[in-house]
Write a protein that binds this DNA or RNA. Structure first.
Lengths: 203, 203
DNA sequence: CCACCTATTTATAACTG
DNA sequence: TCAGTTATAAATAGGTG
């Protein structure tokens, strides 16, 4: 679809590859949603861009739910070998999110300049869907970013805690060596639960 | 695409739903593959038909690989989503806030039940505004909660850092007292900028 | 990079056997 | 139910501002 026919092979030009990715990603997400709604089935879609950014769609409330279902269906060995791929690209693209109050303005314009007829209604529906999609995208993007922020802080914490443990050990060694000090080293390893638990308590 | 335009809602007729499912499933798979090839990205797609049958596509050798990647990527996000489900109580005061695909269904219901008249349009406008407000509320609430989470981690970090400084001082004191040790205490106070700055960089 | 445009290609809804 | 056909809606490649 388009001015020219497309060959089913990697687009070599980086720029057009990026553009095509952006466009087709949107189309694929839309079609996934349509399939889920029209046929009342569960659909999960995830896309990792070459820069490691994740885009996902899920018809259920959480992709995790579908993943769980997948796991029960296909009893695969998903051994938890964490390939710690560190994606440093924190502030990359934010696909089509400038919007601001523009959708509402568009709605206003539609309402005011069009005659109140069926056509207008249908167009309004499209607009509505668009608005919803945009809001979803924004919300999801924000979530992603904030999760990254939390993750970063969690990593920082972890490191500090490790350093602390190390120092405690060193001090203990010093004390047992030849000294009697009255340093109070309270064991507080139990403090600060892991991230997941912390988050759970918030909601 | 096709003889008629399609409404974005569940196809009630079981037979055509099945036909549409079959056709669109194929189309979606095809497009997923195209995206993966053309743009050189990883794509995973899974579809559960209403009868529980699983259809999947994956650009990698195994869907498991991508799932694993997904898990490492958004482990925390799953926790967040799951916990926000526990928050249904908070959402209870906001009418009709089931997220999911509900808003679109509501719109569809309105469009179909009502005669297409000015009155309907006005009601639609109200609906729109409501939808927007609801989405804003949700988004704001979520933001609040995540800021709290980040803040909590930041506080934890701060405390750990203070404890560390204290211990450094104690160790320095011990050393100057009567010891010669070769402890390497690097000053790294400059690490980890304050919360506000961190957040600013995100958006 | 992003929104919008338009000529074309693709996907598919409705139909048929 | 299923494969094939066709008319039409949608997606999108390439281009512009």
């Amino acid at each position: 679809m388009g001015r020219g026919k497309v060959q089913l092979k990697r687009i070599e030009d980086k720029s057009s590859r990026q553009v095509t990715f952006s466009k087709r990603k949107g189309g694929l997400m839309k079609k996934a949603r349509e399939l889920a709604v029209l046929c009342d089935v569960e659909v999960a879609l995830m896309i990792f861009s070459d820069r490691g950014r994740l885009y996902e769609f899920s018809s259920a409330e959480s992709l995790g739910k579908i993943l769980e279902r997948y796991r029960t269906h296909v009893e695969e060995e998903i051994a938890v070998r964490r390939s710690s791929e560190l994606e440093k690209t924190h502030h990359a693209d934010c696909p089509g999110l400038q919007m601001g109050a523009r959708p509402l303005e568009m709605i206003q314009r539609y309402l005011e300049e069009q005659n109140i007829q069926e056509k207008t209604l249908i167009e309004l529906t499209h607009l509505e869907i668009e608005l919803d999609v945009i809001l979803r995208q924004t919300r999801f993007r924000k979530t992603q970013l904030m999760i990254e922020a939390i993750k970063a802080h969690y990593e920082e914490e972890k490191q500090l805690r490790e350093e602390k443990t190390l120092m405690e050990e060193e001090m203990a060694a010093m004390m047992s060596e030849d000294h009697v000090l009255r340093l109070e080293l309270e064991p507080n390893n139990a403090r600060a639960p892991p991230l997941q638990e912390t988050l759970l308590n918030l909601f």
